[in-house]
Design a protein around this nucleic acid. Structure first.
Lengths: 143, 143
DNA sequence: ATTACATGTAACCAATATAGTTACAAATAA
DNA sequence: TTATTTGTAACTATATTGGTTACATGTAAT
């Protein structure tokens, strides 16, 4: 199955907040094209991860850190698209009486970790600043 | 959500077939520790991907290609753990009237593709031969 | 040819995740 | 005090996963 769209929505939300701190969950929902509660739930995750600051009753949110210090990996982990350190599922109880069964997990796991960290490395090298700049550039060149 | 264990089970199945062509789905299920039908369904995918040759009624299966030419990426794609070319889901209909909304998809997609192909590259560099050799080595050193 | 055994599927089930929705409490600001 | 907003609980529909039963079909060996 594909990785949840919470990730791309999270990036979308943060990009909006970066350009306008008075974005309410209703306005953001309008841009993402979904329900405001979906937005609030994802914002709640971003808040727990200390990427944004939000307060009940007061409209909008602020970035908790400078744009250039927030990586896509931070967002990816914040919205919990994947159980920590286990992008790849491994079948749990292979037969210890079989040579393959008793070695498959320890053989396959380090490779999965390599693949996972290769993916995360790419995400870690892109910041929200890159995203926002890219969007601004596209806007500028299309006008 | 984690990537389906069909992947690790697929590797397990192929490793067993590599070491013994007379492995029935019952025997394999015993080693994987699951139901034989689960095994047959995954083997059906491996067959469609032309990684193995199986015939109805006749016990066991054969590798369709040499061990060293089957990569983990081949297995990964064979068991369809991920919708083709879309490891990362992207929210479908952002608002075109918003600067962020109308650019988020085209900004984020190429990065997602980079991350995905970094992951796939790791899988493509490991062959089933590597896996089986590793298992044999672990067996030898533990005796 | 009959028997025994395998594969190949259809059809179902329980558990879980996703994305969306309604409803409402609590906090804030005007 | 009123209007607005955040924060959640609770619920829904849908889809995927992993497992299971049941059974038709194919093969080989006696």
């Amino acid at each position: 199955m594909a990785i949840s769209t919470r990730f791309s929505v999270g990036i979308h939300i943060l990009s909006l907040i970066a350009t306008d701190e008075k974005m309410t969950s209703d306005l953001i929902a309008g841009s993402v094209n979904t329900n405001p509660v979906v937005i609030r739930k994802i914002m709640s995750m971003l808040k727990k991860a200390e990427l944004i600051e939000v307060r009940p009753g007061v409209a909008g949110a602020r970035l908790a850190r400078p744009l250039s210090t927030i990586t896509l990996l931070d967002v990816y982990q914040a919205v919990a698209v994947v159980p920590d350190k286990e992008l790849f599922g491994v079948h749990a109880a292979p037969n210890p009486d079989c040579p393959v069964g008793r070695n498959i997990q320890s053989t396959v796991t380090p490779i999965f970790e390599l693949a996972q960290s290769a993916l995360e490395k790419v995400l870690a090298h892109v910041t929200l600043d890159d995203i926002v700049s890219e969007i601004e550039q596209k806007e500028a060149s299309s006008s």
